[in-house]
Design a protein around this nucleic acid. Structure first.
Lengths: 110, 110
DNA sequence: AATCTATATCGTAATATTGCAATATATAAT
DNA sequence: ATTATATATTGCAATATTACGATATAGATT
């Protein structure tokens, strides 16, 4: 096999999994953190920041874009990349919800 | 290639990526959500909850355990699985931090 | 038009992941 | 001791991911 059985899970589960999978690689975490660090949208520059070849970076950017985590606007002959706040908010809420439910629970056995 | 170049990134980036990668599969999200839903540690039961064969579920549980997201205590001839609150808290903080930094930033171009 | 710069796509090799049948292990119950 | 139950491990096939060289594309500059 090798193909994930997405059809057996709920849409929400698949959506969250897709987002987290997209962030589940250090290069893509590094991209997100770089976009944050410069505190602006980046036009160019990303390839030079990462220890990976240009096609590899391009591929990682594509995956982040496909997952909806970043947006890319064409800006002259460069592309302006930005983090999508909404999606990050979604993830924040997801983990916040889990956290509160865990603290309310008072684990008995572990 | 095919092997992730973890050595080129910071420890923190690799740690976060490892956690998110472990959660980047709907079956593992479903496991976490089931552990939450029953509001207790689960001894047994998980295999019957998921639309996957027992060895597959066992493998997913192992990955969650390796990433540190769940803990498993042997309880008779079953195993008692629980979510590790600390690690979830870490993820919550991570996304909260990104969120606040994003709202402070007031995206200019996107 | 020719050239430069930035990014994307193609092709491909190396490796990792997903899923499961078969089998092993280990405790519980009879 | 034998059997039942729960979970893990092994082995393997199908598929996905990662990485990059080569090449394509597209706007900017000269």
């Amino acid at each position: 096999m090798g193909a994930t059985k997405t059809d057996h899970f709920t849409d929400k589960q698949n959506q969250i999994a897709t987002l987290l999978k997209a962030l589940g690689h250090p290069a893509r975490i590094a991209i997100i953190e770089y976009l944050l660090k410069v505190n602006a949208c980046i036009c160019g520059d990303i390839v030079n920041e990462l220890p990976l070849a240009q096609p590899t970076v391009s591929q990682h950017l594509k995956e982040l874009k496909n997952a909806g985590l970043i947006k890319g606007n064409i800006e002259g002959n460069a592309i302006c990349y930005c983090i999508d706040e909404k999606v990050i908010g979604k993830l924040q809420n997801y983990f916040e919800n889990i956290s509160t439910r865990l603290t309310n629970k008072k684990n008995s056995c572990c």
